[in-house]
């Protein structure tokens, strides 16, 4: 098991996939991090020296990811809500925000749009 930013990962997992499990890191950021430390895309977590893992953890801790990113997003929605804007209201009502029609499919909006949005 390898410990990256408070999470444990199996040694045979790809580092790129491990990084992408963090909220706020996708293909772009994981590619950037790999490039920064000159790690090839097929590297497994277990192959890397501890120093590199520590460097990656340090890099991740400077980024706005996970809880910080979630809080940031919630704050943004809350701001809209507090202003009393249309977008804020739509968020609060769990309805589509960007002018979509609401006649048939608004499942995603119902699931996600709320003032205390989780992800």
């Amino acid at each position: 098991m390898v410990f990256i930013l408070g999470n444990n990962f199996l040694e045979n997992r790809l580092l790129k996939h491990c990084l992408e499990t963090f909220y706020g890191i996708g293909t772009k950021h994981s590619t950037r991090i790999l490039a920064k430390f000159s790690i090839f895309p097929g590297a497994r977590v277990g192959q890397l020296p501890t120093k590199t893992i520590n460097d990656i953890t340090a890099e991740l801790s400077t980024m706005t990811i996970e809880t910080d990113l979630r809080r940031k997003m919630r704050d943004n929605i809350q701001r809209l809500r507090d202003m009393g804007s249309y977008r804020g209201r739509r968020h609060a009502m769990g309805l589509p925000v960007r002018g979509q029609r609401t006649r048939s499919q608004i499942l995603t909006a119902r699931k996600l749009n709320r003032t205390d949005r989780a992800n």
Partner: peptide, 8 residues
């Protein structure tokens, strides 16, 4: 090549 430099 398919490798990336630190500046991506």
């Amino acid at each position: 090549s398919a490798y990336r430099a630190p500046d991506v």
